[in-house]
């Protein structure tokens, strides 16, 4: 792929990830968010967060399987977009749903497992977003940086649990995300296992 095509692809993914937010904004201003706009916005931004987290986690296996470095180059952007959507998600919850009532929020976080998991997932994502720049990679050193960023598996899993716990009945999607995450994590653990490395070296 030429450098120019790569740039076009980068731009396409960049704009593509922005589209859900733009669409929600359009629907907000045209009154097209349904009977409960706040609920729709919270659900949609949460949904895009987990979709992007899961997609981002599939990029590394994809790169290795395809033996092509292209997918992994989008990892940071996808991850930061996930963070962008979770920030909107959390802000709506804190400011609109809870009306910034600190007492109610603290109670909610401690008492409701799905909120607890959601909040833990968010808190795990904060340092990852902060250390996403090239400078921070250099400052931490690639090894430590990679170790730190493995936390994204935990964050995504907490996100899936958060989703699973709030659904009233139809748990199809939380289970699908859970299955993809488990597969991706399993694949990476298998890759990291000494046995696998020996086999690959032998082949």
């Amino acid at each position: 792929m030429t450098e120019k095509n790569r740039r076009i692809l980068w731009l396409a993914v960049f704009i593509g990830c922005m589209l859900p937010a733009a669409d929600l904004l359009r629907r907000l201003f045209t009154g097209d968010l349904g009977a409960d706009p706040v609920e729709t916005l919270i659900r949609a931004t949460g949904d895009w967060t987990i979709k992007l987290l899961v997609a981002g986690l599939l990029l590394t296996p994809l790169t290795r399987i395809l033996r092509n470095p292209l997918p992994v180059r989008f990892r940071r952007m996808i991850g930061l977009y996930a963070f962008f959507y979770v920030c909107i998600h959390l802000t709506l919850y804190l400011a609109v749903d809870q009306g910034l009532d600190i007492h109610a929020i603290v109670k909610d976080v401690l008492k409701r497992p799905y909120i607890t998991f959601g909040m833990m997932a968010f808190l795990l994502l904060v340092p990852l977003a902060i250390t996403s720049t090239r400078k921070m990679v250099a400052r931490l050193g690639p090894k430590r940086w990679r170790q730190l960023h493995r936390a994204v598996y935990v964050a995504a899993s907490f996100g899936a649990v958060h989703y699973y716990l709030l659904v009233k009945l139809d748990i199809t999607w939380p289970l699908i995300y859970g299955a993809i995450l488990t597969t991706a994590l399993g694949w990476r653990m298998w890759q990291a296992m000494p046995l696998h490395k020996t086999l690959r070296a032998g082949a």
Partner: peptide, 19 residues
């Protein structure tokens, strides 16, 4: 009496922004 997973102390009236 809260639902085990969410609070029943507040509600959002359809059409309203805040609970």
């Amino acid at each position: 009496v809260d639902h085990p997973r969410w609070t029943q102390a507040k509600e959002r009236r359809i059409g309203d922004f805040f609970r």
